[in-house]
């Protein structure tokens, strides 16, 4: 290559680089402007302002000082509420695990008996996912009365939606070769599901169920806010009575419970995966 043509090539390369860069800048600027406009408008709508934060700091401080120190003697009273919280989460998750087996099979393209069943199941599961446990809990408290039973049902329904959709997607992504091998032996549809599909999805099913238990424990701590049992009930009750030191204890216990559950569930999950 001659020196001249080399120089031309280099300057062409530089020009090209600049062109690409400018085009990228323009694109980024446009998207950035749109994002800022949306965020600014949203901030305006929710009355978000740094001033409000600043002005809120003294109130926040005041509230925190009223919380401190936590009334540790109240912990002994919270024992049964803590146990109830765990029990709600365990049964909510267990019911969800049981329910999600048929729903995940019906909601996966490769195991559903009919495409209409598939779509109906997915819509139903999306509805369960979209509605927060707390909303279910509110409705169930009206339907079956105050108490942990409403909480169990609420957690069970929401967790079924989450779990079944996750498992359905796992079922859809199983290794096709293993399935084909079993079909080729003359196995029936159900036998292929039992011996080909289930062994493949079991690890992720178990792993996600453990994760769901962790999430359910977290949710169960607040179900009491609407009267569906557990620690949240003590939290809201003590607040209504202005016993803030006891409220602080509730928050502390919830924090510890979630931390421990996170730790145990994390360990269990690493064991199965």
């Amino acid at each position: 290559m001659t020196a001249v043509s080399f120089e031309t090539a280099v300057s062409a390369g530089l020009a090209r680089e600049a062109q690409v860069r400018h085009r990228r800048y323009i694109k980024q600027a446009v998207w950035g402007a749109i994002a800022i406009a949306v965020l600014w408008y949203a901030a305006h709508q929710i009355k978000f302002s740094p001033y409000a934060v600043a002005a809120g700091v003294p109130f926040m401080w005041d509230f925190l000082t009223r919380l401190f120190p936590p009334d540790l003697s109240y912990m002994s009273v919270l024992g049964s509420a803590t146990i109830e919280t765990i029990q709600i989460a365990i049964w909510g998750t267990l019911l969800a695990i049981i329910l999600s087996i048929p729903f995940s099979l019906l909601g996966a393209r490769n195991t559903t008996p009919h495409i209409i069943v598939f779509h109906a199941t997915r819509v139903f599961l999306n509805a369960l996912r979209a509605i927060n446990e707390l909303v279910f809990a509110l409705i169930f408290v009206s339907a079956v009365g105050l108490g942990p039973f409403a909480g169990v049902l609420a957690i069970a329904l929401h967790a079924t939606g989450m779990l079944a959709k996750f498992v359905a997607e796992e079922i859809e992504s199983v290794d096709k070769g293993q399935i084909e091998a079993q079909l080729s032996t003359g196995a029936s549809r159900m036998q292929v599901i039992l011996f080909g599909v289930i062994p493949q999805v079991i690890p992720s099913f178990v792993g996600y169920s453990i994760y769901r238990l962790d999430v359910s424990i977290r949710s169960a701590t607040v179900l009491g806010l609407v009267g569906a049992g557990g620690l949240g009930f003590s939290l809201i009750q003590t607040m209504k009575l202005f016993k803030y030191h006891q409220t602080a204890t509730c928050i502390l216990v919830i924090f510890l419970l979630v931390l421990v559950s996170d730790w145990i569930c994390g360990k269990l999950r690493r064991k199965v995966i």
């Binding site: 929710i46 978000f48 109130f59 607040v222 979630v258 996170d262």
Partner: peptide, 26 residues
Amino acid sequence: NVFRSISELIWAILFVAAVGLGPFPG
């Protein structure tokens, strides 16, 4: 871990106490 372990609803209760009712504490 502290931020994560306290549910958004409990945070919301705290922030409502601090900055008043409305979407902003949410």
